[in-house]
Simulated scan of single mutants.
Amino acid sequence: MERALSWLVLGLVGITGGAVYLSGQTYDESLFGLDPASLASVTPARLPVNTIVVVPAGPTRVGARPRQTDGAAGVLASVSLPGWRTLGDVEGFSPTNLYEKINGRAEQYISYDFVGLTYRGLATDDGTRFIDVYVYDMGTPEGAFGIYSVERDPDAEGLPLGRRGYRSGSSFFLWHGTYYMQVLASDADDALTAQTRRVVEDLLQSLPDAGSTVPGLALLSAAGLVADSEKYYANNALGFGFLTHTWSADYQVDDVRVTVFVSTQADDAGADAVVAGYRSYLDDFGAKITVSPGPGGTGESLFGDMDGYYDVILRQGSRVAGAALLEDRALAEHVAARLLPAMVTDGRDGDG
Rank of each mutant, 00 (worst) to 15 (best):
E91Q: 15
S212Y: 12
G116N: 09
A218W: 14
V135G: 01
L326N: 00
N103H: 08
T178L: 14
L10E: 12
Y134D: 02
V320N: 01
L161T: 02
L31Q: 13
A337T: 12
P208S: 15
M306C: 05
Y278L: 11
T259C: 02
A337H: 10
W175P: 09
T43E: 00
R329I: 11
Y180L: 05
A144F: 03
V90T: 08
P82C: 03
D70Q: 13
D132A: 09
T51C: 10
T86P: 02
S229T: 14
V55I: 12
L314M: 02
L31D: 06
S212Q: 11
V75N: 07
V62H: 15
A234L: 04
A185H: 03
L5F: 13
R65D: 14
D189N: 15
V335I: 06
D126K: 00
R105A: 10
L225P: 03
D113W: 09
D70R: 06
Q265S: 09
A276F: 13
Q108P: 03
L47D: 04
A237R: 09
A19F: 15
Y233K: 09
A4C: 07
A19L: 15
P59C: 13
A210H: 13
V20I: 14
M343F: 02
G177S: 15
G121H: 00
L8S: 13
R348P: 06
D28S: 12
L204T: 14
D255L: 09
L238H: 07
K101A: 07
D283I: 11
S318C: 07
V291K: 00
T345I: 08
E157K: 08
Y310G: 01
A45V: 00
T26V: 12
A19H: 13
G241V: 08
A336T: 05
D202C: 04
T264Y: 02
G350F: 12
